[in-house]
Design a protein around this nucleic acid. Structure first.
Lengths: 338, 338
DNA sequence: TTGAAAGCGGTACCAT
DNA sequence: ATGGTACCGCTTTCAA
């Protein structure tokens, strides 16, 4: 401890005494309200400086019944949290929007049963006025808490199981669009490495692929892998190549998968894009690290975070928690892999 | 809103009335203290259920003067936050330790001047009892706040500018060790792609390299690049190759840099490890994605987070904020790139 | 424009 | 084991 043991932290009371005004006036000054005379202001500023006053957040929250903080809740499996290249961008995007509105973003990560309970309590505890939620789960204790508290909130990624605002992208439409683009380059035998079919994003991307191909769709050209990972991409491509050696185009469910696929193709002696055209999904850091760089679907991660935060802010301002679903555009970025 | 507009949230008071005991007893029950009879316990549990009581965190913090929350403060430049493969692991490691001690970890991102001020206020506001800090800065308003408040804290990565606990790795020693290992494989002309020399980690790794080579050190074989990035690795390797075509070994300042270097070597027609042996630093996800996989220094990211959190917890328990510096071991992981 | 006073929802000490 | 009762530090009417 640096501070002398006996010295309490200064309170509004101390400032009031020092400045010769009432606590009410201090409060008004602190909150930038009108009705504070110039002289009072000056006296208060001097007093604050002199006694070293720093407001106590808990007391403030208690009395005002709001915290000026919004939670950013990440509820993804351990591995996914580390792998997902988008999550950091979503976070920064949300922080940008909240910061501009002078809200403190507090990120809570849920990585165990214990965390789930504790975070749910945190939500109920009045520490945050709203929440942006990035979650693979639906209808878990956290979503329930948000629902029960009627807390301003927005989900990112998947539509929530509960009735709440939601910001996402049209995975199906985007997958369809990039597949069509690949078809347009003249490829005849196009396969897909479909990943994470247990998640909406995964199954939607497959659905988009199927629908783009229409009658030309051949189920034998779809290889399923469990995760959006590099390793899964390598393995998936190898199996696909074995089943369909004549294939000349591949839609990988994510950039990481595409990177793995390119590696597998290289090992098999196929050239990209000459022999096989490859397209990915996400436009993550992977996209520019492969050789050749990936043609892919741009995922507006930062925009998702910002939009979700803004949805929360709007609910906070208007008090209207009406459900809204927003889809952000996903432009295709055409590079050299197809 | 689900709740009828008029219905207040239940308070201890309501529970006390319903259960027919005093508020003090409720408090004791809630905090798991002894001296609560079985009958009282039962009555309280029923009452809580009936009135739908959820404790108010702000009130609790105010009265108890503690929050049972620890901040995890990330103060890295925008780009670095996204690139750094370690930060997620550090976060999860810290969360694991805090969660086990029943503390809520709240992550605060500092991404602008505005954030700096707001986060500093948050620290002073009594919302958290301690902080784990991952920061490129030293002596900024946040470190100052931590110091001024004599708040239990631990810095991860670089030694802090202020007197506080610190958990890190011996970059110099680790760099020396892996360079020596590279020398032991018989390489004669070993170069280094040194990165981020403006940061401790960067300059320490270079120092370790230099010291390992001793009298055989040739300054012409050191190429400096600004960032720990893939692109910097490509560019750095190309320049190095131009200056020293006879080089047969490279120590890259990070795995990302090493991955870039391998790509540049491939483009130049050199085989790895036959013609040139390459080693990296971090043992991040990059390490197993290169072809061949990287021999590198393992960075115990999750352990860093856990150790830092534990340092904070210890200070919290003992009240002793004595400075401690801890270095975690960094084993060498030998794969196929050298 | 300002002061007084009543909360906000708990905790913790003390007497019983 | 329990109840009573001062606070914790700030906000917010309301009257002046």
């Amino acid at each position: 401890m640096n501070a002398p043991e006996g010295r309490r932290r200064a309170t509004v009371h101390d400032v009031a005494l020092e400045a010769g005004v009432s606590r009410g006036t201090i409060s008004r000054y602190m909150n930038g309200e009108r009705y504070v005379s110039a002289e009072a202001r000056l006296a208060i500023e001097a007093a604050i400086e002199k006694v070293g006053y720093v407001p106590n957040g808990a007391a403030r929250n208690l009395a005002a019944r709001r915290s000026m903080a919004v939670g950013f809740i990440v509820h993804e499996p351990h591995a996914l949290f580390l792998e997902d290249p988008n999550i950091g961008s979503i976070m920064l995007g949300a922080n940008t929007a909240l910061s501009a509105a002078d809200y403190q973003m507090v990120t809570l990560i849920v990585d165990s049963e214990r965390d789930t309970e504790r975070v749910a309590r945190y939500l109920s505890g009045g520490f945050i006025d709203g929440a942006v939620i990035v979650s693979a789960r639906t209808k878990d204790p956290i979503s329930r808490a948000v629902e029960r508290l009627a807390m301003p909130s927005a989900f990112v990624g998947h539509p929530p199981g509960v009735l709440a605002a939601y910001v996402g992208v049209d995975n199906r439409g985007a997958a369809k669009a990039i597949t069509e683009r690949l078809v347009a380059t003249g490829r005849r035998r196009i396969g897909m490495i479909a990943a994470a079919l247990d998640r909406d994003s995964g199954s939607d991307r497959l659905a988009g692929f199927t629908s783009a191909l229409g009658s030309r769709f051949d189920p034998a050209l779809v290889e399923e892998v469990p995760l959006y990972s590099y390793a899964a991409g390598v393995a998936g491509m190898q199996r696909l190549l074995q089943r369909a050696p004549d294939l000349d185009g591949v839609f990988a469910a994510s950039d990481a998968v595409a990177a793995g696929a390119i590696e597998a193709l290289r090992m098999a002696g196929r050239r990209v894009p000459e022999d096989v055209g490859v397209v990915g999904f996400d436009d993550s850091t992977w996209a520019t690290r492969t050789q050749p760089p990936l043609s892919t679907v741009h995922q507006p991660a930062e925009g998702l975070g910002r939009a979700a935060a803004e949805a929360v802010l709007t609910q906070l301002e208007t008090g209207d928690l009406t459900f809204t679903g927003t889809m952000l555009p996903t432009p295709i970025v055409w590079r050299a892999s197809a």
